[in-house]
């Protein structure tokens, strides 16, 4: 086992856009994933997840890449390790750079995931890559209207109480539908909780 050690991570750098998010940035190559996860026939409550990635001076980062992975509305993952399997139209993976929105936001159009069934509250997992980040970071997005489930969630319980809010997206029910907002703070008093996952 010791002979096969993990290949080291390196930064995604400033020039990932045409390789990993080509369609979003208007380069002539297809993309494996984008900001729209839910199709017309996907079951579940439509939501938009909106946020920014802020550096140690509180400035929005314009060259971060955010990937999200989530269960479908019934809490099932589209993967063989989930014995229930997802409904066939929903993959649950999205990827966006923060460089095409004027405010450097990411906007994912998806469905609200259901609880997976292992005692955890509904959540989306998120990976962050950017220039200046040598090893990618894992964090999670929970939902502000799931207070009871969040209170019972074992992952949130392992986070000190004063930092749990950094993982909870705020729900807004407006004319454009359901929006959840969450900013990712790399540093500072509101530094987001990142996981050694």
């Amino acid at each position: 086992m010791a002979d096969f050690k993990q290949t080291p991570s390196q930064t995604v750098g400033p020039y990932f856009a045409y390789g990993l998010t080509a369609k979003q940035y208007g380069y002539p190559q297809t993309s494996i994933a984008e900001g729209v996860l839910a199709g017309d026939d996907t079951e579940g409550e439509r939501i938009t997840l909106i946020g920014r990635v802020l550096d140690g001076e509180g400035k929005p980062i314009p060259d971060a890449m955010v990937e999200i992975w989530q269960a479908d509305a019934q809490g099932r993952y589209a993967h063989t390790a989930d014995p229930r399997g997802s409904n066939s139209t929903f993959v649950g993976f999205g990827r966006l750079g923060t460089g095409t929105d004027p405010q450097n936001r990411f906007l994912f159009q998806t469905v609200k995931p259901g609880a997976v069934g292992d005692g955890q509250a509904p959540h989306i997992t998120l990976i962050l890559f950017m220039r200046g980040l040598l090893t990618h970071l894992y964090t999670r997005v929970y939902f502000s209207d799931e207070a009871d489930a969040n209170a019972a969630d074992p992952v949130l319980a392992a986070v000190s109480e004063d930092r749990r809010d950094t993982l909870v997206a705020a729900r807004e029910d407006g004319a454009q539908g359901v929006v959840y907002r969450i900013d990712i703070h790399m540093q500072g008093p509101c530094e987001t909780v990142f996981f050694d996952a």
Partner: peptide
């Protein structure tokens, strides 16, 4: 200015982490 300053919080792998696209 881009790396987090607080320790990472250990997260045991569950179905969320063990699955993927």
């Amino acid at each position: 200015l881009r790396g987090p300053t607080k320790p990472l919080v250990p997260l045991p792998a569950g179905l969320t982490e063990m699955t993927g696209p």
